[in-house]
Every structure is written in structure tokens, then in C-alpha cells.
């Protein structure tokens, strides 16, 4: 049993290249910021739409916020907005260092911390995507931590990080699926109808009214979503269904991105799925076969 767990967690030999995963995380995190560049000060600035007095109501004392540092920097005449710009520059610099493989463990921690602080400083503006970026940057610390160890141990540690991400995603989808099973909207197809009406553009909503006469379409889409999410932990590991499950999940997120205009969230979830399970497809340049000197890799049992 212990050996099986050891192989499962540390002996994963087939994954997307670590280099590819770290660069994808760094690039995505940078794009995430660039997406809101025209509005940065309305979100993060001292005179932003939702100011610090509002934000402070929702966060705990142990959650770092920009205000902590702005108060300190204020003693040397640096304003709140300038403090924000300093941290923003540090964040982008950290992502660049991750990309160029310079002191990755250090900059993985720094980028995670600054992003975490930004999310805390804009509690009401933060939604699912921001929390998933926080989680992804936390994952990146686990991935980059391997650089602190000898080369022969790095494969096992990267295997651990990927298993960690895989199992976490399984729980994410399972709870997303079970939550939908509790009500009535996802069972009778009304949820898809409501999502189209309340989240999509009027053109798509108008188009969907033509389909009202065929409620079965809405039911199939709703049940398809619930089943895919609920059974994701099983389907994504079963040899017969894993490829099609990955494709369906990527399609689900593409749909969320295109129709609901949750672009960042959609791409982020696709990226996490690709990092975790992307090796199911043979993209030769991005695959790696880690050779670990651990006992695990010397056995013939391989969990992919």
C-alpha cells in the first residue's frame, strides 16, 4: 500500500515539461494584469471605485493588504498609488524571472505573495478567477521548490506537485457538480436558460429564445455539465474516458469564456487542466519523461 502511494504521488514519469508549466503560469499571470491595465487605478488606487475603508470590512487581520506597506512607505513620502506601482513592477519582474529561470523558488514565492496581497486589497472586485490565480501561483511554489533540491530528487517533487494539482482539480469539479445537484434549475434545464439570459450578450440570448420550444436541448446541456463535473474525478483517470473527458472539460471552459465572457477564468481553468492532464495527448515538444533515481521509478507500475 505504502509503495503504491509512493509510486502514485512521486513516481509520475509522464508529465508536461516543468519548464513549459512554469512559463505558462508566468505568462498567464502577466496577461491577467495586462487585461486590466487601463483600469488599474480605478481598481487598486487610493481613490478607486471601492476604497480601502470598504475593503477592510471583509478581510482578516492576517491577510496582507497594500495599505500595510503604503503606511510604511508613507513615512518616506511615497504615496499609496506609488506603493501600488512599486509592487506591480515587482510582480511583473518576478514573473519575468520565473520565465527566464532566474532564482525561481524566490520569485515564485514573491509573485504569489504580491498577487495574494492584491486580491486581499480588492476583496469585492475579486472573483473566482482571481482566487484560482492565487492557487496557481501557490502551485507554482510547489513546482519551483524542486530547484532547492538535488537534481535526482526534482522529478519526484515535480510529480508530487502535478498529483497535488490533479487531486485538487478533482475536488473542485466534484463540488461544482454536487452543488448543482442540490437545486432544481440544473435538473430541468432552467439553469442553462438563466445563464444565457443573465450572463450572455443580448444577441446570444435572443438566439436562445428560438430554442425554447426544444427544452430537451437545455436539459442535455445542463445534465451534461453536472455529470461531467460530478464524475470528473473518475472519468479523468479512467483509461477509456480520460482523453474525451479532458476535451469536454476544455470545451466547457471555452464555452464559458466565449458565451459568458469570463475570458480570464476560462483560459485559466483550461491552463490548469492542461498542466495537470495535458500529457494525455502527445504534444512531443512539451512532454517530458523524468528520470528519477527514486525507488518508485524503478518499478514497472506507471500511473499516468
Amino acid at each position: 500500500m505504502k509503495k503504491t502511494i509512493d509510486i502514485f504521488v512521486f513516481g509520475k514519469t509522464k508529465t508536461l515539461k516543468k519548464e513549459w508549466a512554469i512559463k505558462a503560469i508566468a505568462l498567464f499571470s502577466a496577461i491577467n494584469v495586462l487585461f486590466i491595465v487601463p483600469d488599474l487605478f480605478y481598481i487598486f488606487g487610493e481613490q478607486g471605485i471601492l476604497q480601502q475603508a470598504v475593503n477592510e470590512r471583509y478581510i482578516f487581520w492576517y491577510q496582507p493588504v497594500l495599505g500595510w506597506f503604503a503606511d510604511i512607505f508613507g513615512y518616506v513620502g511615497i504615496s499609496y498609488n506609488a506603493t501600488f506601482l512599486i509592487f506591480l513592477a515587482m510582480y511583473m519582474l518576478s514573473l519575468a524571472c520565473l520565465w527566464f529561470n532566474f532564482k525561481r523558488p524566490v520569485f515564485a514565492v514573491l509573485s504569489w505573495f504580491i498577487h495574494f496581497m492584491f486580491v486581499n486589497s480588492t476583496y469585492l472586485f475579486s472573483y473566482g478567477a482571481d482566487y484560482f490565480v492565487s492557487f496557481m501561483l501557490f502551485m507554482n511554489i510547489l513546482i519551483c521548490a524542486g530547484y532547492l533540491f538535488k537534481k535526482e530528487h526534482r522529478g519526484a517533487l515535480y510529480s508530487f506537485a502535478i498529483r497535488f494539482l490533479q487531486l485538487h482539480l478533482c475536488l473542485v469539479y466534484f463540488f461544482a457538480g454536487i452543488g448543482k445537484l442540490l437545486g432544481t434549475d440544473w435538473l430541468d434545464g432552467n439553469a442553462i436558460w438563466m445563464v444565457i439570459n443573465t450572463y450572455t450578450s443580448s444577441t446570444i440570448a435572443d438566439g436562445s429564445t428560438a430554442m425554447v420550444a426544444y427544452p430537451i436541448i437545455f436539459k442535455i446541456l445542463a445534465w451534461g455539465t453536472v455529470i461531467l463535473e460530478l464524475l470528473y474525478p473518475i472519468l479523468i483517470y479512467s483509461k477509456q474516458t480520460r482523453k474525451v473527458t479532458l476535451v469536454l472539460v476544455l470545451m466547457l471552459h471555452a464555452g464559458i469564456g466565449i458565451f459568458m465572457q469570463f475570458y480570464i477564468f476560462a483560459v485559466l481553468m483550461m491552463l490548469l487542466n492542461i498542466i495537470a492532464f495535458g500529457h494525455y495527448f502527445k504534444w512531443k515538444p512539451s512532454l517530458q519523461e523524468e528520470t528519477t533515481k527514486s525507488k518508485a521509478s524503478s518499478t514497472k507500475i506507471v500511473y499516468s
Binding site: I178, A191, V195, T198
Partner: peptide, 9 residues
């Protein structure tokens, strides 16, 4: 992670 559930307003 219970997004858009149990129902949609």
C-alpha cells in the same frame, strides 16, 4: 467551488 448552484437567480 459550488459555482452557479444550487440554482440560478
Amino acid at each position: 467551488y459550488s459555482f452557479f448552484s444550487p440554482n440560478i437567480s
